[in-house]
């Protein structure tokens, strides 16, 4: 085992990855099997048939022509996209200005460092006052949770740009504003996309936690109510969907990065 020695064949890591996923799925069904041996009527670790039932339940069309999963995905993804989108825009402003201008760095860095340590999930009551309990609250929660981290990542990435590059830009006739968005922004773009990728997980945690407490539609709401009723077949199907959404977004961002940042050394 030589450290960092890559495989010669491309299919090997893929195969091993697939094995690990199948192992995980296998372990789940093994646990489910054991649990049903103990109690055949168990609903807490659903078997595949129970999961299928759960799936048909969440995709059943109600008299209003809607399905659970449809309604909930729409609500949750809308909140998630809006929340992440606004965090990114805000973080860009904060991160770039902190990284570029000494006054803003001195002004924003301490607040940012403090806020980055606060878990928004523990501050629901504050959000009620600030934003009410509508969509704004969910978005505010994500924004509050993500912005300090993403902007700090952007800030650090900006700080890593060598001074030479910036001086160089000035000698090419750029003004400070142009340099920020034509040079610095482009140079930290990969770091931004990576930071967003890593933030999808926390964003989901904040959103789901908020939805569990407030609201009558969305993944968090459904998961809380259905786990109270021990309908784990529904809960786990929802979790599978969540994992899929997360994976898909991750994949999408990876693709965007490969398209936008083809200049990066691979």
């Amino acid at each position: 085992m030589i450290i960092r020695k890559p495989f010669q064949e491309k299919w090997k890591p893929i195969l091993i990855g697939l094995i690990s996923i199948f192992l995980m799925i296998g372990l789940y069904f093994f646990m489910s099997f054991r649990q049903h041996e103990i109690n055949p009527k168990d609903t807490t670790i659903p078997t595949i048939t129970q999961l299928m039932k759960g799936f048909s339940k969440i995709t059943a069309v109600s008299h209003r022509g809607q399905t659970w999963i449809g309604q909930d995905s729409k609500a949750t993804l809308y909140r998630l996209f809006l929340g992440i989108g606004m965090s990114v825009i805000l973080s860009l402003l904060i991160g770039l200005s902190m990284g570029c201008f000494a006054f803003l760095e001195a002004f924003l860095l301490p607040i940012n460092a403090l806020l980055a340590k606060l878990p928004p999930t523990a501050m629901l009551a504050v959000f009620f006052v600030l934003t009410g309990t509508d969509t704004t609250m969910f978005i505010a929660m994500i924004v509050f949770g993500l912005t300090p981290t993403i902007s700090q990542n952007i800030y650090l990435a900006v700080k890593q740009i060598p001074m030479e590059t910036i001086y160089k830009s000035y000698t090419l006739g750029g003004n400070s504003f142009e340099i920020v968005y034509k040079i610095i922004f482009k140079m930290v773009l990969p770091a931004i996309i990576d930071s967003i990728r890593l933030s999808i997980g926390p964003a989901m945690v904040y959103l789901i936690a908020a939805e569990m407490v407030v609201g009558d539609v969305g993944f968090g709401y459904r998961i809380r109510i259905q786990s109270r009723l021990l309908n784990m077949s529904v809960v786990y199907t929802y979790l599978a969907f969540l994992a899929f959404f997360g994976f898909f977004m991750d994949f999408l961002l990876k693709y965007i990065k490969s398209r936008l940042c083809s200049w990066q050394r691979t």
């Binding site: 629901l124 009551a125 009620f128 006052v129 309990t133 407490v213 407030v214 609201g215 009558d216």
Partner: peptide
């Protein structure tokens, strides 16, 4: 409308 009782109480108190 569904809401956690602690959260609903907080909202009313606010």
């Amino acid at each position: 409308v569904n809401m956690d009782p602690a959260a609903a109480a907080t909202a009313m108190q606010q």
